[in-house]
């Protein structure tokens, strides 16, 4: 057991973790942030995606101890400060990009990084980017639409700000 500290959604958290404890189990168990999900044991489903130091990571594929001192962002920290859905979340709702909601946190965390690195992704680019996130409910059609729509909204907002 070792004590580790990380900044999660802007707040500092400490907890105990064994050497073998995965980041996802630490986030869910020790920190009680259950929005990050576990959908597989082979690092394929992406239900567990969080951001570690700004990059999307499958939190089932890293040890908690390896993230000592890291900046972590989880789905719980994505919404706007006033508690409303941010642009990407709102687009998922608007375009019915979720059904059971289990894959959704990972989808949102993955897609938000995509929009950071590619402000106007094509359909093919979105599908390619999200191939590490499995959704069994939606058939991806509406997820793709949601990401495209969020990109357009963000571009519109950026243009308006100029």
């Amino acid at each position: 057991m070792a004590k580790i500290t990380m900044t999660v959604n802007g707040k500092e958290h400490s907890g105990e973790a064994e050497g073998r404890t995965l980041l996802v189990d630490f986030i869910r168990g020790e920190l009680g942030l259950t929005g990050t999900h576990v959908g597989c044991d082979t690092s394929q489903c992406g239900a567990c995606v969080v951001h570690v130091n700004g990059e999307s990571v499958k939190s089932c594929s890293v040890f908690a101890q390896a993230c000592d001192g890291a900046q972590i962002a989880t789905i719980e920290g994505v919404q706007n400060n006033d508690g409303t859905l941010n642009v990407l979340q709102a687009a998922f709702q608007e375009h019915h990009g979720l059904q059971c909601g289990f894959c959704t946190p990972g989808m949102v965390m993955s897609a938000s990084e995509l929009l950071k690195v590619n402000a106007a992704p094509s359909e093919a680019e979105i599908r390619e980017w999200l191939k590490g996130n499995i959704c069994r409910c939606t058939g991806y059609h509406n997820i793709v639409k949601a990401v495209q729509s969020a990109a357009a909204t963000m571009a519109g907002a950026a243009q308006a700000a100029e």
Binding site: R28, L33, T34, G35, T36, H37, V38, T74, I75, E76, V78, Q79, L85, Q89, F92, Q93, E94, H96, L98, G101, F102, T104, P105, V108
Partner: peptide, 19 residues
Amino acid sequence: VVRREDTRFLKGKGRYTDD
């Protein structure tokens, strides 16, 4: 109508059994 349940799912506030 857009789905009301989406809000909690999108915020990571779903209540699944393992939660």
